[in-house]
């Protein structure tokens, strides 16, 4: 669907060239919610903006459903943009127009027949749950409501792609949840591909299917969200994950009893909600004492991690571990003495 190949972009600031994108390649599948995460200045916005050419890449290819965006002439580019919606951190609503007027703007640009506009506007406002605010001005709305207008406007021309640049970063946690839920709902119902830029792992965890981690203009890691949550490889991913409220073992507080190893288990997808631990106890006779654990709800899967202390005979412990390994759970012995 979206194929980004070797995209390079340099900014000239004060005579010095700043390479914001250093050869980025990504493949985004139709219908998925793809996250782009990274620390401030990593180049996330710059990358996102090359997709609809709000920013021109220096070199590289950006294919959107077959057409190379970088080769389009102005008029073709404008037509393409009508099929690529975009939402922004600061909403960017026209203060001179009402909520309806803002949605109508997109339709006017999209050259909808005048008489069809009111009906489509009403439809879009209903979709985002703002029908009762049709005649309000943006200055009379809360942040969450403004973003809903932004979403209604971005989707009015029935785009196949929605680009989101920190769309929830100016919102409080509860409003963020509701906007993310709306985006997920739209993705599921309309099958629209969403490319979402954020610096919050929580956002990625909540709605993204796959994610790319950007570090100083390079993709340092990409893959399924649950894989990166379970085994973050890059420093950025680890750092960003560390900001999430997360229970994990604290090395100093581990019980260190001879013959009772401490092990951490990582569950993914289908295994997180199966009674693997209790089966291991029953079939092997080992005792398993849970020290800490967490289960994350990701779209389409659950991942979890558990830190436990095993006790019993050598054979019982070995049997329990091999049973648990056989259930596709990654195990890591943290302490054994």
């Amino acid at each position: 669907m979206i194929e980004i190949k070797n995209v390079v972009k340099t900014f000239n600031s004060g005579g010095k060239g700043l390479e914001a994108l250093k050869g980025i390649s990504l493949h985004i599948k139709p219908g998925e919610i793809f996250g782009i995460i990274g620390l401030s200045g990593a180049g996330k916005s710059t990358l996102l903006r090359t997709i609809n050419r709000l920013g021109e890449p220096d070199s590289g290819e950006i294919r959107l459903g077959g057409t190379d965006v970088t080769k389009l002439a102005p008029v073709e580019l404008r037509n393409l943009r009508k099929k690529v919606g975009m939402i922004f951190q600061h909403f960017n609503l026209l203060s001179s127009r009402t909520v309806s007027g803002n949605v109508a703007f997109a339709l006017e640009v999209g050259k909808w027949p005048k008489r069809d506009i009111p009906r489509r506007v009403a439809e879009m406002l209903e979709l985002v749950g703002l029908s009762d605010k049709a005649d309000s001005y943006p200055s009379e709305l809360s942040g969450g409501q403004k973003q809903r207008v932004g979403i209604a406007r971005a989707l009015a021309n029935k785009p196949s792609v929605l680009l989101s640049d920190e769309a929830t970063s100016a919102l409080d946690p509860k409003t963020t949840q509701s906007i993310l839920a709306l985006l997920e709902d739209i993705n599921r119902k309309m099958g629209i591909t969403v490319v979402l830029v954020t610096h919050e792992m929580g956002v990625i965890r909540q709605i993204c299917h796959r994610v790319a981690v950007l570090e100083a203009g390079r993709v340092v890691e990409q893959g399924r969200v649950r894989d990166i949550f379970m085994k973050p490889r890059s420093r950025t991913a680890r750092e960003l994950l560390s900001h999430l409220p997360r229970m994990s073992y604290d090395a100093d507080k581990l019980p260190k009893e001879p013959g009772k190893p401490v092990v951490s288990f990582s569950f993914n997808g289908g295994t997180a909600d199966q009674p693997i631990i209790s089966r291991a106890i029953k079939t092997t006779g080992a005792e398993i004492n849970i020290l800490s654990g967490e289960i994350d709800n990701l779209p389409a899967s659950k991942v979890g991690s558990l830190t436990v202390q095993l006790s019993g005979t050598q054979e019982e412990i070995a049997g329990a571990l091999s049973y648990i390994r056989s259930q596709n759970v990654e195990t890591e012995v943290i302490w054994n003495g």
Partner: peptide, 14 residues
């Protein structure tokens, strides 16, 4: 606000 112009451009405005 330049953001408004940018939003309009992103929608395909001339």
């Amino acid at each position: 606000d330049h953001g408004l112009v940018e939003a309009a451009v992103s929608m395909g405005s001339s």
